[in-house]
Amino acid sequence: MRFVEEFRDPALAKALIAGIDATATAIGATKDNPVRIMEICGGHTHAIFRYGLDRLVHEGIEFIHGPGCPVCVLPMARVDEAVQIAEQPGVIFTSFGDAMRVPGTKKSLLQAKAEGADIRTVYSPLDALELARRNPEREVVFFGLGFETTTPSTALTIQQAAREGMKNFTIFCNHITVPPPIRALLDDPDMLLDGFIGPGHVSMVIGIHAYDFIARDYGKPIVVAGFEPTDLLQSVLMVLRQIEEGRAEVENQYARVVPELGNPVSLAAIADVYEERPSFAWRGLGEIDLSGLRIREKYALYDAEARFGIGYGAARAREVAEPEGTECAAVMTGKIKPTGCPMFGTQCTPETPLGALMVSSEGACAAYWQYGGRRAPEAAE
């Protein structure tokens, strides 16, 4: 298959691994003194473990798993509010499937559905809009969730609803942006990072210059990467070569997909429909200024928070604690590996998840579980 097979070529992968080994050795990377590279995107985390890249690269390379899963960083208070909306009489609540099993403080959306709420899995916000057309007597709400990757589709759907004059369709907006949490991580004195692998799908929308501050203000290299094994290997090599040469730049390995300036149609739709929230709570990171989006006043008719009187309560979001004994926040910020959590693989499994990292399709804990990273907590690093 074109654009897939050539990026899984074993000979090319071996050549890239040899280049990584040579460069890592040249800069003095060792198991005890590794180069710490954070992959921001949860899709990259899963690809690293799916293809065993963590075991193929030089022992002096350590992958640090960042907060790149929008489902995982959603605070439990917002899950609670989603359930609250879904349980209103006459509501059809719609969501992507990976958000259905994320625990709130009392229940998940899937549990609310089992108790009788009309909650349906959809594949796009346009599916939810079609449900609203077919059910004019019902309120249809879409759980708008995700980074800049999914934000344009929600924005375009709101614009379509406005053109049609829809009266029974709203979005529960929880869209967030990638650059602010990266800055928050870099400002954390406990985070020791040498470089970044930048998110490919997000960058398709926003381009590569949104990350200029990483190189300019913090002196860290970042390479926007694709999702195939040779994409990631080449990106690691590009980060290492920047370190070897004393450079800190934003480079685009995924140029076949990611335009330098992003997607102008998507960016225009986002700018038209959304504005920045003053702050937004991130699970594991706390409040981050200007990191969330909300629907502009001119589209207030399609804002579920306005329709159902559920305002964003930052203080309340902070007060919701993680399940006792879990280390979701530390895993989410790359401070420990999933196997370092005492609940991993014991009380927290895909069948009985305690945190979003185990149920999300991009969660780090799910990656470790699915691709053989399971170890008893006492054996974890």
Rank of each mutant, 00 (worst) to 15 (best):
P10H: 09
A13W: 10
A15I: 10
G19I: 12
A26S: 10
I27M: 05
G28M: 09
T30S: 13
P34I: 12
I37L: 04
I40T: 02
G42Y: 05
G42K: 00
A47V: 03
A47K: 05
I48R: 01
R50S: 02
Y51A: 05
L53Q: 02
G60R: 10
F63Y: 13
G66I: 03
G68T: 05
V71L: 05
V71S: 02
L74W: 00
P75M: 03
M76F: 06
R78Y: 01
R78I: 00
D80G: 04
A82G: 01
A86C: 02
Q88W: 12
P89G: 06
V91C: 03
F93D: 02
G97H: 03
G104I: 05
L110E: 13
A112F: 01
E115R: 15
S124R: 10
P125D: 06
E130H: 15
R133N: 10
R133Y: 09
R134V: 10
N135Y: 07
E137C: 15
V141W: 13
G144R: 06
F147Q: 04
E148D: 11
T149D: 00
Q159A: 07
Q160E: 10
A161K: 06
A161Y: 04
E164G: 03
E164D: 14
E164L: 14
G165M: 14
G165I: 11
K167A: 11
N168W: 08
T170P: 00
T170M: 13
P179V: 06
P179S: 06
P180H: 11
P181M: 13
L185C: 04
L186S: 00
D188K: 07
P189L: 07
P189M: 07
D194F: 06
F196K: 11
P199H: 13
S203L: 01
S203W: 03
F213E: 08
I214S: 04
I214K: 00
P221R: 14
I222M: 05
G226A: 00
F227H: 06
F227Q: 07
F227T: 02
D231W: 09
L232E: 00
L237F: 14
E244N: 10
E244L: 15
E245N: 15
A248N: 13
E249L: 15
E249S: 11
E251T: 15
Q253H: 14
Q253G: 02
Y254S: 03
R256M: 09
P259R: 15
E260M: 12
V265D: 08
V265A: 13
S266N: 14
S266R: 12
I270T: 04
D272M: 08
V273N: 06
E276K: 15
A281D: 00
A281I: 08
A281K: 07
G284Q: 03
L285F: 13
L285I: 12
E287D: 11
G292F: 05
R294Y: 01
L301P: 05
D303S: 08
Y312R: 15
A315P: 07
E319C: 05
E324G: 08
G325Q: 07
E327A: 12
A330F: 08
G334I: 04
F344Q: 00
G345Y: 09
T346C: 07
Q347D: 01
T349P: 08
P353S: 04
A356R: 09
M358P: 04
S361L: 12
E362F: 09
G363C: 07
A364N: 05
A364P: 05
C365G: 04
Y368G: 01
G373Q: 09
